Amino acid sequence: MTPAHQLTLNLSGRLVSLEKPLVMGIVNVTPDSFFAGSRIDGAKALGERLNTLVREGAALADLGAYSSRPGAEEVSPEEERRRLRPALQILRDEYPDLPVSVDTFRSDVARMAVEEYGASMINDISGGGLDPAMYRTMAELQVPYILMHMKGDPKTMQQQASYSDVTLEVIDYFAQRVGQLLELGVHDIILDPGFGFSKTTAQNYELLAQLGSLVEAFTQPLLVGVSRKSMIYRPLGISPEEALNGTTFLHALALERGAKILRVHDVRPAVEAVQLYEELRPVLRSGEGLHYQHLRPL
């Protein structure tokens, strides 16, 4: 018998259902994110961004202070904390009902965010690979952990996009690390295949096409982050600012293949994609639909 998939997340003591996919809105307090429209400078801009997330229906905010774009420069732990603290304070004081995920690969930053500001989740692009204390810290903090696939670090990852079978290697990576986390007592684990991280455009699309294999292999929910990434704008010959339409198209494919969380720059289009997918899903589940062999040429 196939094990049942995880259908809830414990976010600061509140059980949140994953039966309907969730939208996570990106909040970057960085000066160098690859998408200029996501960079936030100052309390006023942050408040406007958070108001937009809430108004457009985001279930989560993902707060990051260290750009993970290819070739990104090093940010010290002190600077990362300095950038995060004012934003975490505003989120805690003014948006207490909006669960906050903190995008960091450092265990001490994760601890600060959870223990001092009540962050609900940690999003680790390195999957524990850049801080050996992260897994034990997550076991102590007992908040959901986003385990992402990446080889190397943001400065070196694009030189490590070598795979015999990218999907199988991502599955093997998750299998090893999920086992370690479960053994330590980390209960809520979300899997992120890491689109754009140590993968070529072709490998990104191969992995997207095979998302269903990841869903079948694990009981943990799947997060997909493709928003405005180079896998969209490079094949189309456009900029990240022009990549919303392509993003929404790939979100629809990811939902159809089993994604439970979409990490996005543009909340409303993603929420609408989820809503329309929910209209379609009962038909997909029942096996009903149009059978083309019944059509006759005019």
Rank of each mutant, 00 (worst) to 15 (best):
R81C: 04
A59N: 08
R49Y: 05
R285N: 02
G25D: 13
E288H: 10
T8S: 05
D192A: 07
D153M: 05
V16F: 01
A243V: 13
E288L: 10
A161W: 12
M121H: 10
L15N: 12
G196C: 01
T247K: 01
T248I: 14
D108N: 14
K199I: 00
D93T: 06
V109L: 01
P235I: 02
H5I: 08
G225A: 15
E115C: 08
E78Q: 15
P154R: 13
E94W: 10
D93Y: 00
D131K: 13
A65H: 07
I261W: 03
A209N: 11
F197Q: 02
D97G: 04
G185M: 07
R228D: 08
G246H: 03
H187A: 11
E78W: 05
E48W: 02
L250G: 00
T137Y: 06
R136Q: 15
E19Y: 02
H149K: 04
S68H: 12
D97W: 07
H251S: 07
V166Y: 01
G246S: 10
A161G: 13
S101Q: 11
P154N: 03
T104D: 05
V186Y: 12
G42L: 04
M138L: 15
G237V: 13
R268Y: 10
G25Q: 07
P240R: 10
P240N: 11
S101P: 06
G212S: 12
R92K: 15
Y145V: 00
L60S: 09
L11D: 06
R263W: 05
L141Q: 09
K199Y: 09
A133R: 14
V23G: 04
S227I: 12
I232A: 05
L250F: 10
P77K: 13
T201M: 02
R82P: 01
V267K: 06
I125S: 06
P31S: 09
F174C: 12
H187R: 15
P221R: 04
L262C: 08
T248S: 09
V178H: 12
Q89G: 14
G152M: 07
E19V: 15
H5P: 00
V114G: 01
D188Y: 12
M112E: 15
V274P: 00
V29M: 02
G127D: 08
T201N: 08
V75Q: 06
L98M: 13
L91N: 04
L88D: 12
R268V: 00
A254L: 03
L222Y: 02
L130G: 09
Y117W: 13
A58T: 06
L91G: 06
V114T: 08
M134L: 13
D97Q: 15
Q180D: 14
L284F: 08
N204V: 01
T248V: 15
S126L: 09
Y95W: 11
L184A: 09
H187T: 07
D266R: 03
L255Q: 10
S164C: 01
S164I: 11
A4H: 11
T8E: 13
L298D: 08
V283P: 00
E216H: 09
D97E: 15
G194C: 04
V27R: 03
A65K: 08
L11P: 03
G185W: 11
G127V: 01
T156K: 11
